[in-house]
Design a binder for these strands. Structure first.
Lengths: 231, 231
DNA sequence: GAAACGCTTCGGCCGATCCCGAAGTGTCGA
DNA sequence: TCGACACTTCGGGATCGGCCGAAGCGTTTC
């Protein structure tokens, strides 16, 4: 009744729902996840999750970033994480420290698919390699493949002239939520990912968006793109 | 669904009720309060508060210490306080730091009534003064007034022989929840408090259990008991 | 012993909210 | 333009939890 006090209960009540708790825990490492991914993490239907996400966003616990038809949610501030850790410490009572990351989180950060192209450290490294060699030039919301880039990609097994030039973006940057830097999307990004899969350099990991880099892939990325992935 | 996770939501849900939040905030400074006091702080009826306190105790957020017909509740561990501060930081969002203590809390710590005797720093100091001079001797659950003590108290205006020697405890220690040390209770403690009120040394503060020490009282406590209260 | 007091338990009312099925909006790709 | 997809909004059903009046239990005081 003294101004700030009611909101304390409101915030706690927001956390005090299993589905919302699962959502917050899933976001605890700072990554941004889509509504559908969070619905799976929450263990309830997408509609129900949508309502929860709306409440959490309105209460400034989460922030929403729309990207195409996806809605990426992430924790609004490190304070949220601290609060959750405080609650977990009381709940666990014994182990004050909770798992700071997901199972498989490191794998996701290393390399994963983002829709149909590559993301994570690998995706960002690929974009970096291509841009520093001026094979592609990326702007804020688009990009082009340079003539040298066309040659390079042809040598890699991708004919950019064969790529569908329809309504879908040809080459554009896509903000990587774990690396906070752009990786390569569009048909070029998609073709690049497909080629890497075809070459056996990478393989999908069951039930996740993570991809595993095979030994041959490790050597290939190093030789072709100058990318060194740590073990 | 993974063992410890549900309890996180449970703990948060426990905090996520205005009445319970008020209870926890009232206990935030580590003091122990009675069920009735907490009912007032919570803003709901004593029955409802009793239910809340039972839940909080069962969840190990509070611990209960029964003393006579009173039930003293306090936070089970410093972790609870940390958790609350974390939630408050998120709720306030702007000012990350919350008032760490109650309004009037310092006054309560300085001097207050405990049922009908004195508690707080003043109450503990009085008990200390009387015991170090061996005017009273306190054991774990009882106490006696020495002959020297009878003389001293008579000089102060209290005739211990006139005190009701009925079923009520004559002289006993009472654990002080803010100082964590015993102060003087029983008919002797009550008579001592009444005499201080009668002398005008202390005066009740409206709507609280706090008592204000008058300037004359400050001098009196110093001269009679050797107690120096800081301003 | 009786009355007062503090606290708790019981019973029932009520509102909140959690959830999903169905439908609507906007984007993407062919 | 059309279908697929991601997400949200709408509607209603069922459950849960908060709240208080009344009553019960134990302690304290007279």
């Amino acid at each position: 009744m003294a101004g700030t006090e009611p909101s304390i209960a409101e915030v706690a009540a927001l956390v005090g729902n299993p589905a919302r708790t699962n959502v917050l825990i899933a976001l605890l490492d700072g990554r941004a996840l889509t509504a559908t991914e969070l619905a799976y993490a929450a263990g309830v239907s997408p509609q129900t999750t949508s309502g929860h996400l709306a409440k959490l966003t309105q209460a400034r616990l989460l922030v929403l970033a729309k990207q195409g038809r996806h809605a990426y949610y992430r924790l609004a501030s490190p304070l949220i994480g601290r609060m959750l850790e405080g609650i977990m410490a009381v709940a666990a009572d014994g182990p004050p420290r909770y798992r700071p990351r997901w199972r498989g989180d490191e794998a996701l950060r290393t390399a994963r698919t983002c829709y149909d192209h590559l993301a994570g450290r690998l995706g960002v490294a690929l974009a970096d390699a291509l841009t520093t060699r001026e094979h592609v030039v990326l702007s804020d919301d688009g990009g082009v493949v340079t003539p040298a880039g066309e040659d390079f990609l042809r040598g890699f097994g991708i004919d950019v002239h064969m790529l569908n030039r329809g309504r879908r973006a040809f080459c554009r940057p896509c903000l990587d939520w774990s690396e906070r830097r752009p990786h390569l999307a569009g048909t070029v990004g998609s073709a690049l990912a497909n080629r890497c899969f075809a070459l056996g350099w990478i393989a999908p990991v069951r039930d996740t968006r993570a991809v595993r880099v095979a030994p041959i892939g490790r050597r290939g990325f190093a030789a072709t793109f100058g990318i060194e992935l740590d073990a």
